[in-house]
Design a protein around this nucleic acid. Structure first.
Length: 306
DNA sequence: CGCCAGGCTAGCG
DNA sequence: CGCTAGCATGGC
């Protein structure tokens, strides 16, 4: 199999775009950087590095699994893919968002402005639901680079292998492919105590008992509750899946970094429990796009900003 | 060696 | 309900 190639002029989209910030900000763990330097240069623009992933079929976007490579150079996104990558990239990288309008709809607040300035053009991602669910189950008490390493390893060990132009790519395993693995096998991949969570959640999806897409269309807090039925998914992981996969842009995952930000910058939003603190910080960050603001703050603080 | 990392589950009061 | 011990692993 060979690649088709193309390019998306960034003048075609509403607002700026920064591929490195979007893919190395700890939202998606499903892309790999071809030069092997993922997360090594968080503060330094990585130039025109290629990023690659194997995308499962997406309803209404692409019928078949596709290998997609992309890099940002000279005001455009160059791509190489096994099919037309324009609709796929538009979907995965949320190129259909009007970023200026979204940022205009969030509050004027000095922390947010610093974060927006530092990573202008960062967009949310729209990850495939099942891989997103598994990657954030793995994220518990784990560093960003290790979460990424785990997902790459799951793909290498258990996912489909696709060869294009002489190179081998590994798709993230489907629920069926993961569900037949044992807890011990997953522990051997150094998933630690997350191994049974991943195995049992994959089984729930494979058996048809539940699917992350079931949350789509529910009111936000009901959607968050519904995802916690999966093993290894609490409120925080649930919010990550809602925000980074299912399009709930108001979701604000309350992780350790945001808890710190609340204590330092929004102390009156600390309400003692997840539900109430979530309501308060969502309101403070502007409501419907609060998750966009959260993701900028997360990346900014993790990179050393204050 | 100790500490910490995009937390969650089970079991307790 | 709210609270917390225990949980794997690797990097510093």
């Amino acid at each position: 199999m060979e690649f088709e190639t193309g390019a998306i002029p960034l003048s075609d989209i509403d607002g700026a775009f920064d591929l490195q910030a979007t893919l190395e900000s700890g939202q998606s763990y499903l892309w790999d950087r071809a030069d092997g330097r993922m997360y090594e240069s968080m503060d330094v623009y990585g130039g025109d590095a290629w990023y690659e992933t194997v995308v499962p079929p997406i309803d209404g976007v692409s019928d078949e699994q596709a290998v997609v490579r992309v890099r940002q150079t000279d005001g455009r996104l160059e791509w190489e893919a096994t099919t037309d990558a324009v609709p796929i990239l538009t979907h995965l990288l949320r190129l259909d968002d009007d970023l200026d309008a979204i940022l205009d709809a969030t509050p004027d607040d000095s922390l947010l402005e610093r974060a927006y300035d530092a990573y202008e053009g960062m967009r949310l991602v729209r990850d495939p639901p099942f891989p997103c669910l598994i990657s954030f189950i793995c994220s518990a008490q784990m560093r960003v680079s290790r979460i990424h390493g785990m997902q790459m390893r799951l793909a290498r060990e258990y996912g489909d292998t696709v060869t294009v132009a002489g190179e081998t790519y590994h798709a993230f395993p489907t629920a069926d492919q993961l569900a037949v693995r044992t807890e011990d096998e997953l522990r051997d991949l150094s998933l630690g105590y997350r191994a049974p969570y991943v195995q049992r959640t994959a089984e729930m999806v494979a058996n048809g008992d539940a699917h992350p897409n079931d949350a789509v269309g529910l009111p936000y807090e009901d959607a968050r509750d519904s995802l916690t039925q999966f093993v290894g998914v609490g409120d925080k992981v649930s919010d990550c899946v809602l925000l980074f996969s299912l399009g709930f842009l108001e979701a604000v995952p309350l992780d350790t970094w945001i808890q710190t930000a609340i204590a330092d910058h929004y102390p009156d939003c600390e309400a003692g429990n997840y539900t109430e603190t979530s309501r308060a910080i969502r309101d403070r960050l502007g409501g419907q796009y609060a998750g966009y603001a959260q993701t900028y703050v997360f990346y900014y603080l993790r990179a050393g900003g204050e």
